[in-house]
């Protein structure tokens, strides 16, 4: 609690941007226990979308039309659903992908630096038809967009 009071400015950053760039460079030499500490366990093991967002320290995300999500309207198999995300929001630092109805909604959190465009393509598992929600971190603000994907065969 006292830490929260003394570092209000920095705490939200730490949840979403949990690693500093120096830590990234040092990853290769880190023992497993240290790596486990870097992984955002609270967010990734959360079983509801609001809890997962809370684990990422997201508060009050604003809907945005400047987040492009390319995902199928209908997926035959939920085991492999390709999702392409691009943020056109200035100063985008990170993009998180969540599937509201998955047993653990948070799929991935991508943190960009050093000349990387704020865009990713990846393939995710979906337990059932659900919104795929994107949360973008830009400075101290969070933005969100979602796309519904109908799934006929569960992939979880």
């Amino acid at each position: 609690m006292s830490e929260q009071d003394s570092s209000k400015q920095h705490l939200p950053r730490r949840g979403f941007l949990q690693l500093t760039l120096g830590a990234v460079a040092a990853l290769m030499w880190m023992p497993v226990s240290a790596l486990a500490a870097l992984w955002n366990k609270a967010a990734f093991e959360a079983t509801t979308q609001p809890e997962a967002a809370k684990g990422l320290q997201v508060a009050g995300e604003t809907p945005s039309s400047e987040i492009d999500i390319i995902a199928p309207d209908f997926a035959e198999s939920g085991a492999v659903v390709q999702v392409e995300v691009k943020s056109r929001i200035a100063n985008t630092e990170a993009i998180a992908i969540l599937v509201e109805k998955n047993p653990t909604p948070l799929i991935a959190n991508f943190i960009f630096s050093g000349g990387a465009e704020p865009a990713v393509v990846t393939r995710i598992k979906m337990a059932e038809s659900s919104n795929v929600q994107i949360i973008v971190k830009a400075g101290d603000r969070y933005f969100t967009a979602a796309k519904m994907v109908e799934v006929s065969l569960s992939g979880c």
């Binding site: 690693l19 990234v24 992984w39 093991e45 960009f112 990713v120 990846t122 393939r123 598992k125």
Partner: peptide
Amino acid sequence: PVLEAQWGTGVSKNPYL
């Protein structure tokens, strides 16, 4: 460093990025 990703169990088998 240019990109750091944290993943959960919801990324598909044989991950593509």
